[in-house]
Design a binder for these strands. Structure first.
Length: 635
DNA sequence: GTGGTTCCTG
DNA sequence: CAGGAACCAC
């Protein structure tokens, strides 16, 4: 489907994702705990009252279960994630599949298990079935959620599972388990104290036995699936997996699930696992298909049917809801980036006119053959800094968006970013490529794509869904995030006006002090910039360069490396080629001035400054909208 | 005067 | 990168 490759995945964000991954349990974890408050409020456990439950079709699996006699000893709470969310309509499973899914889901929980509730067999059995159903529904619901919701839950499975089982994950907050265990125990019967361990062990064995049965069922199911259906199923499942999955839980091409924790596999993963076995073991097992029990055959047919239907519905639904949004944003970005998209690096705003000086204008208008990449020249290849790290960054999939912290509002921003990143021309332009290409789409696109790591930061309280601009300035002081943003903006503008700064730092409560600080920042940026360029100009002169036009700043030049390190330390932002043009021109101007001996004049830099001050480019609108300021280390 | 810039210093 | 001084332009 979409090439799974992100450009310029930020290192910084990823680090923060790591720290964020251990966040506290989402609110949803407590969803069902509230149901323990039977007194007062409408006491309706989230898994009760299912009209589908007593369906006669459920007997298929029920028979299987009855053999194990585990149904009585299983605590519904054990398998039930405390989620009260009903799956959206349209994703309802048919009963056979529902039952199968229940088994699939429940038998995966082999970890330490809470004490079963001993009393009231019938009610317990009923609740157990209901619990199983609720769990499956929660899984299905999780699958049909858009990625951000998944992210909100702290990754696939993790958020949902945490409340119900897998206590050995140890991710819970110390206080929460007590709450939850009290809650879940209250739904069945009071937990007994002493036989806890023994019963746990017994339960574990029973569960393992049940899992064996499940595997048998899976194998049988895989046998029945003809190759065509299997292919369809897997294809569809992979499509869906692209959306709700998180990077670490992605399904490999072979269909094997590479989830971090086997016990947290979702229904999709379980089903895909079946597909995997289909691919792998189908041939050898096909011979035994003839003795396939009719029960399994019927079940497999039902599974196939339901699975195919639901897959297509999920895909349709997701695309239908998500794509228009992303497309509109995409269009908007393109409109806003119009000047750049047309290859106009020096935007209108200032009515820029061609430079008077011959070398300068020639530098800008005509693209020389990549001259000995400035960088002091000659041994440009040898001395050029290797873009290796850059390439690595680009290849690194950064879709592991910080789990557990992204707000829904960030959703389509993420998607937009990914869509943009996936655009075919999105690449780090090589020096040779920059020669031939027009400055259009690539030049315009980089701004958005490379900003994406910033753009997908959580929007923060001052952002609002549907409008990514901050409503109210919330920051009374400039933050490191603002500094980083300012540095990136320097690639476009060296001499920003106060008004421009004001319009690009919308989340900042502007004051004279703030304004001065921002101005000062850019002054410092310029200082460093000019010092570096002058240094390299003088060095080039010393190395015997005679023509200023021979100097050109390319991405693998030393000067570029130095500047990039200063303004774009994380290297998570692709420097616009127009900045290279400006840098090249600056270098040539300094070179010419020094060579002509003009540096004897105390104010010899002034003319250069004046020239450079007219080369500011349009800053992409995304700089206004994105919450760059949110990307603080402590956020 | 105020704002913006450069230069210098730490 | 911030603070301060000096200069310049409005």
């Amino acid at each position: 489907m979409i090439p799974y490759q992100l450009q310029g995945s930020s290192l910084v964000p990823r680090q923060k994702e790591d720290t964020r991954s251990g966040r506290s349990a989402p609110v949803q974890d407590r969803g069902c705990v509230t149901t323990k408050h039977h007194q007062g409020m409408k006491t309706e456990p989230c898994f009760q009252r299912d009209p589908l439950l007593p369906s006669p079709s459920s007997s298929l699996v029920s028979q299987l279960l009855s053999h194990t006699t585990v149904s009585r000893s299983l605590d519904p709470c054990t398998f039930f994630p405390p989620s009260a969310v009903e799956p959206p309509q349209g994703y309802e499973l048919g009963v056979p599949l529902r039952e199968a899914a229940q088994i699939l889901a429940s038998t995966r929980t082999c970890g330490p298990v809470p004490v079963p509730c001993a009393a009231d067999g019938e009610q317990l059995s009923s609740e157990y079935l209901q619990a199983k159903r609720a769990r499956v529904e929660s899984i299905i619901q999780g699958m049909s959620l858009p990625p951000a919701h998944q992210v909100l839950e702290g990754g696939l499975g993790q958020g949902r599972e945490r409340g119900g089982e897998v206590p050995h994950w140890g991710k819970r907050k110390p206080r929460v388990p007590q709450q939850q265990s009290a809650g879940v125990a209250g739904q069945g019967a009071p937990a007994t104290g002493s036989p806890h361990t023994a019963e746990c062990q017994q339960l574990r064995e029973q569960l393992c036995f049940l899992e064996q049965q499940l595997r048998w069922l899976q194998e049988r199911f895989s046998q029945v699936c003809d190759s065509e259906d299997a292919a369809q199923t897997q294809e569809g499942a992979e499509k869906v997996q692209l959306l709700p999955g998180k990077a670490g839980d992605r399904v490999g091409r072979d269909g094997t699930v590479t989830t971090h924790h086997p016990h947290t596999a979702t229904l999709w993963e379980s089903i895909l696992e079946v597909d995997g076995s289909t691919a792998g073991e189908d041939e050898e097992d096909r011979g035994s298909a003839g003795i396939l029990p009719s029960v399994a055959r019927v079940l497999s047919q039902a599974l196939k049917h339901e699975l195919a239907g639901m897959t297509s519905r999920v895909v349709d639904s997701v695309l239908k809801t998500v794509w228009p949004k992303a497309a509109s944003h995409l269009l908007q970005q393109w409109l806003e980036l119009g000047p750049d998209a047309r290859g106009e690096c020096f935007p209108a705003g200032k009515g820029r006119k061609p430079l008077a000086k011959a070398p300068s204008s020639s530098t800008l208008s005509s693209r020389r053959p990549e001259a000995p990449s400035l960088s002091l020249g000659k041994s440009s290849q040898a001395r050029s800094f290797s873009p290796e790290g850059v390439r690595n960054l680009r290849q690194a999939p950064s879709v592991g968006h910080s789990p557990g912290s992204a707000a829904p509002a960030v959703q389509d921003s993420q998607l937009l970013g990914q869509l943009l990143v996936y655009t075919p021309h999105n690449h780090w332009e090589s020096p040779t490529a920059s020669e031939s290409r027009r400055m259009e789409p690539t030049n315009a696109r980089w701004a958005v794509t490379k900003l994406r790591p910033l753009a997908v930061r959580p929007l923060g309280p001052d952002m609002v869904e549907g409008n990514r601009t901050p409503l109210t300035p919330t920051h009374e002081a400039l933050t490191p995030g603002h500094l980083k943003k300012a540095k990136l903006m320097f690639f476009f503008t060296r001499y920003p006006s106060s008004a421009l700064l004001r319009s690009y730092f919308l989340d900042v409560q502007f004051s004279r002090c703030i304004n001065s600080q921002l101005i000062k920042w850019f002054s410092n940026f310029r200082e460093f910039y000019y010092i570096q360029v002058e240094k390299f100009a003088r060095q080039a002169l010393l190395e015997g360069v005679t023509e200023a036009t021979a100097l050109h700043v390319s991405r693998d030049s030393e000067l570029f490396r130095t500047l990039n390190m200063h303004y774009n330390k994380g290297n998570d932002f692709q420097v616009p080629s127009c900045f290279l043009e400006v840098a090249s021109l600056t270098l040539q101007e300094f070179f010419s001035a020094v060579r002509a001996g003009r540096d004897a004049d105390p104010s010899w830099k002034k003319p250069i400054y004046k020239i450079i001050s007219k080369l500011d480019s349009h800053i992409p609108e995304v700089f206004k909208a994105v919450g760059c300021s949110q990307e603080l280390p402590h956020n």
